[in-house]
Design a protein around this nucleic acid. Structure first.
Lengths: 340, 340
DNA sequence: TTGTAGGCGTTATCAG
DNA sequence: CTGATAACGCCTACAA
């Protein structure tokens, strides 16, 4: 089936392409009669503008790019959800790319999106990211750009975040309020800002309650997996059997911790309490149900797109735009794993 | 920053656009000297072809569309993973759209992708889908098209599936082998082919082992959620307390069933055995660990893209293409919920 | 070996 | 109210 074009409509109707174009776009300076004729024929021929031509002409594709570390991930898939829902409402489509937590791939993905000339890019950094060149390239090319969750403080762009430090502080405070005296922390990898901030929140909470900080009680994830949770739980029990509380970087790992405790008949929350982060679905399903920090993932997606849209609209009007940062609220969800 | 174009390079070098274009595409009929000059300048100017222009010229966008019911879903997010990985390897980007299990949205998404003129579409039907017009439109426009998992038997297109009936048969047979005498089935919604097939597999297994089929033992999900699992578990225990095995349409729902049993101190697998479908991650994390049917989700994604690529390549060469169906293997994963 | 010219389909300006 | 004309940036016969 051949696609219908303005030219075809113009020819069959014996009028000019210009007029057809105007009629279809409801310009005021086309007679009602012509307009009707055109609209009718266009309808019956199922005319839709060739988006390739429109893109070329208007220099925009109404498509944005999204780079995230992983799609198969409770938090990120919820963010995706928020972004594509909001994008669609505003007439944008979303190309999704994964970095698989690798900086090399991340660089490649940025390149692909720049070549594709998407109208804007939303991104959450990979854990490996410790270099900014590819990000700077986005900024340099003046592509509207928003970072969320795993951001870089060194980049001047719009951001959607939570206050990781505060949230972590409250999580650890929650453990302390529940009676924990010796609290370990399974932290995220070295680079990501949010792993750093959550660690700082942990430290601050100890400080406030006069619990001595002991770096030996801090365990650092490499891959942030279920299995790492199990391994660290085992290590903690061996090296510091008197630990009575653990704050874990994310629920997936915390669930690994609980799995280990279940298998080794270590009683949660009686002997040891555990709190996670992010409120993954599985946390309310396992035994004992995991206390955690709720992170508004869908909302982060929505907010990210809004900031991007704002910036894209400014760019279209050749207006300056000052990056904005949106900080969303979190709150502690108390479940069985931290009961008194 | 202004984008560099062929024209600019041509002008600064004092040669024609054509020559620049040819030099960059390594045509044989350009002198080595010119070629080098061009390549060098292009490099230093970071020239990348304007994809909008290329799209228009070549009539392809190297972008495909993917429509799935839900992104936040263990099975589908794994499929996405497979598709975008494979697409990227082959120089394609992927636009992802969700139907949210609504046929109306699904229709809209198809429309968006057709307007966008993607080179091909991969899709899994929503549970509501009982009408084909929008799908037929894709076929009519001769857009390469592949369906996976939730397919329609009425559409003549490439498909990637598992043998749901056989897989379900084996799941129920597994329960029977483990000693179950009265087996209930929590099935999926009415429309999707895979819900129908799994139900038929359930029936066949009963038949083979001379267990009378009782339609009262079949419960039909509407939304296929965790909560429905809990509700149906409760119903089953009330209405048929002697049921000793349940085959559940998917792990998420099965986990709901287990949650109910845990809360009401009903012993799994001693009093009643449960088997799910799809091997969601959480199934190996809960207590008791859920037996299930492993479904090769990532591989389904990869295979779907391959079929699509095959069809897109045929189309480019104006060759006829006969749709193919790939059926992937499944296998039973035995865990605690069906132990003897 | 290089360049000219036409076209992909749309939009925008400007003249009639 | 309508239409001719020129872009947008690239590709590719074909001509020189």
């Amino acid at each position: 089936m051949k696609e219908t074009t303005l030219k075809q409509i113009a020819e069959t109707l014996g009028i000019s392409i210009t007029t057809v174009s105007k009629a279809l776009k409801d310009y005021p300076d086309v007679s009602a009669k012509t307009k009707n004729k055109v609209l009718e024929l266009a309808q019956s021929l199922q005319y839709t503008p060739n988006s390739f031509a429109v893109n070329l002409r208007t220099k925009e594709s109404r498509t944005i790019g999204l780079i995230i570390p992983e799609v198969v991930h409770h938090f990120f898939s919820n963010v995706i959800n928020g972004i594509i829902a909001e994008a669609e409402k505003n007439g944008y489509l979303v190309i999704i790319l994964q970095s698989n937590e690798s900086i090399e791939l991340e660089r490649k993905q940025v390149g692909l999106l720049l070549n594709k000339r998407v109208d804007g890019i939303i991104m959450s950094l990979s854990n490996e990211s410790n270099d900014d060149k590819h990000i700077k390239e986005i900024i340099k090319r003046e592509i509207p750009f928003v970072m969320f969750d795993k951001i870089s403080k060194l980049i001047n762009c719009s951001k959607v975040i939570i206050n990781d430090q505060k949230a972590a502080f409250h999580a650890v405070e929650h453990l302390i309020n529940k009676g924990c005296k010796k609290i370990a922390h399974i932290r995220g990898p070295v680079n990501p800002q949010n792993a750093i901030d959550r660690f700082l929140g942990y430290k601050k909470a100890l400080e406030k309650y006069n619990i001595p900080y002991d770096s030996k009680l801090v365990y650092t994830c490499k891959n942030v997996t279920f299995d790492e949770g199990k391994d660290f739980a085992s290590k903690i029990m061996n090296e510091h059997p008197d630990v009575d509380g653990i704050f874990v970087i994310t629920d997936l790992v915390a669930v690994g911790v609980l799995a280990y405790f279940n298998e080794h008949n270590i009683k949660v929350p009686n002997q040891i309490k555990v709190i996670g982060f992010s409120n993954w679905f599985m946390s309310q399903v396992i035994t004992p149900k995991l206390s955690t920090v709720d992170q508004p993932s869908y909302e982060m997606g929505v907010a990210s797109f809004h900031l991007l849209l704002e910036e894209m609209n400014h760019k279209k009007e050749f207006l300056d735009y000052a990056p904005r940062t949106i900080e969303l609220d979190t709150n502690i969800i108390e479940r069985e794993s931290t009961l008194n």
